[in-house]
Nucleic acid binder design. Structure first.
Lengths: 159, 159
DNA sequence: TGAACTTGGGTGACGTGTCAACTATTCCCG
DNA sequence: CGGGAATAGTTGACACGTCACCCAAGTTCA
């Protein structure tokens, strides 16, 4: 219990501010690009990727939630919105009367296939073209360390 | 126009995935802490910090928008919500009939003063205690490089 | 078998954010 | 002075996320 300094040291503070700013700007830029290109949002894109990677382009809601690290209720809301735009469709599940499939439609498939290359290119252009391999390596390590604290922090105390 | 590889190289892809995950988990963790501690959201905190840093605890809406890098309409909506909880109050501006002050209330001031130390401690504990000075330096540099691309990318073409 | 529990999923309320449109001032300039 | 144009701010519609709560179908076990 030595006295805590009131705020962060200068280096840390600078990193913190820039980090926050990047987290505001980068997703916004990616969103704008996807939106202009294919009328997709970032979450739309993530859902479509999961579906594209699955046999028959169909996934159970819970598996979608696990794969995306989303809450089931979020999946449900988002699927409802995507259904309105004909990107996906719900189908009942014969194996398990409680379950539901989320199924990629033709519209959904062609949309993601057309949008993906440009999206990847944008990520590359905005982020990875700016970084050296050494920076990529250091950042990956640092982020892993923070992530492991976060996951330990939250998932904690199961009885 | 050599053919573009369909996705990112492995190292980059790993960093990218972890980055996305961190950006989901870290704000959520900070939000939970602030919420439990002081019933504040992250944006509430940011607004209160700006107000606390200003003489008389009052800032014009547009200055708030500039300081936070928010849209004015976002400021307006958020101030409305914070006003409902008595954290801030609006006052008309005598200098400029169009303007409005956002003013820190006593409730707002005591809330932020009570919440800030724990919030800073959480940031330190979750992030900076995990990183070496070298990592902090490399990340700051890398983020700066990406930020400068982003700002160049978006703010572009002013006629 | 049937009551309790668990699991899969949906819903409604509400906070958050963006965009477009709107009102009211103030500014600029003939 | 008078009439645009710029500026300050608000509002409404809508997408996104979380939380608390709901229901129905499967599971367990006396």
């Amino acid at each position: 219990m030595t006295d805590e300094p009131p705020w962060l040291p200068d280096d840390a503070q600078r990193l913190w501010r820039h980090w926050l700013r990047l987290n505001a700007l980068l997703p916004a830029a990616l969103h704008r690009e996807l939106q202009a290109d294919a009328e997709l949002s970032l979450p739309d894109f993530d859902v479509l990727v999961q579906l594209t990677d699955s046999p028959d382009g169909r996934v159970r809601v819970s598996d979608l939630a696990r794969g995306l690290h989303w809450e089931r209720s979020r999946v449900s809301h988002h699927v409802t919105r995507m259904e309105r735009r004909s990107l996906v469709r719900r189908e009942e599940c014969r194996d398990d009367g409680r379950g539901a499939w989320v199924v990629l439609t033709e519209v959904g498939r062609s949309t993601i296939e057309q949008a993906a290359p440009a999206h990847v290119a944008t990520v590359r252009r905005l982020v990875f073209d700016a970084l050296t391999p050494h920076e990529v390596e250091v950042m990956a390590g640092a982020i892993d360390k923070v992530l492991s604290r976060l996951e330990g922090d939250t998932v904690a105390q199961p009885a």
